[in-house]
């Protein structure tokens, strides 16, 4: 702990580390007595107009913030949770009036949909799933995938929402006989889904048929987590994060890795290791990938951004106002980066 703090204080001023690639656009603070756990951006429809809104989640409250003309944010809805704390926001693309959240203590026990009734705009919540939920992800075409249970007793389900946020139908995917850690969508192939498992396999599903198409073993760091994949020229390019990777003298501290997989032969090769620039230390704490950019909060409290096409770190954001970063998300609605701190502060940067 003390070593990490020393490294933060030794960092040069923000401007010299971050030459213009991240510009602060606006910031606000969510006044809450509980710890801030997640932040996200989404489109919310009010009076037939869609607005880019921000969602903040504390352990006991989820809030929706709408933009005002003056680059300020106004809280318009709050949902309260008194029994089970909120763990994360689960954005579902293409749904405009609904937020999904995962609740639990250490592990996810419930997934709930948060919405407003059309008549009086009052906040409502609906229980979607409950049980020993291991992984959940919102997918394009208004779908939500979740895995419940472990090993052989695992159920992988896809739920599809209607445009106004109602749930339409459910479909099962063939479960692998190993516990799923995370799901990742495949850009350029809407009917494919990837999952990483606890024994470092990547599994590939056909979302239309529910078939388990392939299991690919990846020779990488333990407990690697897939964030996103791209389908190009018969190959899958997969972005993994490495929360458990140890720093090595040869590479430094590896945070993300770009891996190429031939799904036909189940062979894979690492093609890019995203390591921290010299002088930086810390491991991956949490992160987000969109398009060809990957952002991570490090255990040092710094946010780092990599351009996966350029192959190097393009921005570093040291702790602001004396506080470490704890959350980082791409807005999804545009090229903005949301960075959050435990006390409820949210900073919005243009990348």
């Amino acid at each position: 702990h003390s070593i990490e703090q020393t490294e933060i204080s030794d960092l040069p001023a923000q401007d010299s580390l971050n030459p213009g690639s991240l510009q602060l656009v606006s910031k606000f603070k969510n006044p809450s007595s509980s710890c801030s756990v997640d932040v996200s951006a989404m489109w919310w429809e009010r009076a037939a107009a869609k607005e880019p809104c921000i969602i903040t989640a504390c352990e006991d409250v989820v809030s929706l913030w709408k933009p005002l003309d003056t680059l300020q944010w106004k809280k318009v809805h709050t949902w309260h949770f008194t029994e089970v704390p909120v763990l994360q926001i689960v954005p579902v693309p293409d749904v405009y009036n609904l937020i999904c959240v995962a609740l639990g203590n250490l592990e996810i026990r419930e997934i709930r949909a948060l919405l407003c009734s059309s008549g009086d705009e009052s906040e409502k919540q609906v229980l979607l799933k409950s049980g020993n939920i291991k992984a959940v992800l919102g997918l394009t075409k208004r779908r939500l995938v979740s895995s419940i249970g472990t090993f052989c007793n695992q159920q992988v389900q896809i739920m599809t929402f209607t445009e106004d946020g109602g749930s339409k139908d459910e479909q099962l995917l063939m479960p692998p006989d190993e516990t799923i850690l995370a799901f990742a969508e495949v850009q350029g192939m809407q009917d494919a889904l990837l999952g990483t498992t606890t024994v470092n396999n990547i599994v590939i599903w056909n979302l239309k048929t529910g078939q388990l198409l392939k299991k690919v073993h990846i020779d990488s760091y333990q407990a690697s987590v897939c964030h996103r994949a791209y389908s190009e020229m018969g190959l899958l390019f997969v972005v993994l994060s490495h929360p458990c990777a140890k720093e090595s003298q040869a590479f430094g501290s590896p945070v993300f890795q770009l891996l190429v997989i031939n799904p036909k032969t189940a062979q894979s090769v690492g093609i890019l290791l995203c390591c921290l620039p010299p002088g930086q230390a810390g491991r991956f704490l949490e992160g987000d990938v969109t398009g060809h950019v990957a952002a991570a909060v490090l255990t040092s409290g710094t946010v780092a951004v990599w351009d996966l096409l350029l192959g190097h770190c393009t921005a570093l954001l040291p702790p602001a106002s004396g506080q470490r970063w704890s959350l980082v998300k791409w807005s999804g609605t545009d090229s903005h980066l949301l960075a959050g701190q435990k006390d409820g502060s949210v900073f919005i940067y243009r990348y």
């Binding site: 063939m174 388990l212 198409l213 389908s231 018969g234 190429v260 031939n262 799904p263 036909k264």
Partner: peptide, 23 residues
């Protein structure tokens, strides 16, 4: 390692694996 280690590549891998995998 190099991409040569990946073996023969098929542009239609998704359809081919879907026809081979159990329903």
């Amino acid at each position: 390692c190099s991409t040569a280690d990946l073996g023969p590549i098929s542009l239609n891998w998704f359809e081919e694996l879907s026809s081979e995998a159990p329903p």
